[in-house]
């Protein structure tokens, strides 16, 4: 069997993939402490923390504001373009995916994941390395 042509084809596809991924810088997000998110303002990251109940929650039409504190006591005000998720109030922790905006001094979340205590009790050790 002649492998030459399929290999050239594979190489071409590989280049295509590299090209696409290098053109879109926001394809990978990692969990970072809130302080790091603030330093790397403008970079897409995930932060996780408990809801800061001492700060007011504000739910306006199409934007939901709240604050979280992470393990390292970093605090961030979050603006989420969307509606307060169901089960938010009984969440153990909130994962926010988005970028820190240093001008507004606020974390602009594109996506929220609500972690409820009952289901995820034992699992933090696994995923939160």
């Amino acid at each position: 069997m002649n492998y030459k042509k399929p290999l050239i084809f594979l190489g071409a596809i590989g280049l295509l993939v590299v090209a696409i991924l290098s053109l879109s810088p926001d394809f990978l997000t990692s969990y970072v402490p809130i302080e790091t998110a603030k330093k790397d303002a403008g970079k897409l990251v995930q932060i996780i923390g408990k809801v800061d109940t001492t700060r007011p929650e504000n739910h306006k039409e199409s934007v939901f504001f709240f604050s979280i504190i992470d393990e390292k006591n970093g605090r961030a005000d979050i603006a989420y373009k969307g509606v307060k998720p169901a089960n938010f109030d009984r969440a153990d922790q909130i994962v926010c995916i988005g970028k820190f905006n240093s001008k507004e001094n606020m974390f602009m979340a594109e996506k929220l994941l609500v972690k409820c205590p009952s289901k995820y009790e034992n699992k933090y050790k696994d995923g939160d390395k």
Binding site: L28, Y31, D128
Partner: peptide, 27 residues
């Protein structure tokens, strides 16, 4: 598998965004 791969290689678990799949799906 990115969270597992980066968790092992970079000791910091990362996940890909929906944008990753969308921009690859198109071509």
């Amino acid at each position: 598998s990115m969270p597992i791969i980066t968790g092992i290689l970079m000791a910091k678990a990362s996940s890909v965004t929906e944008g990753y799949y969308n921009s690859l799906s198109i071509p």
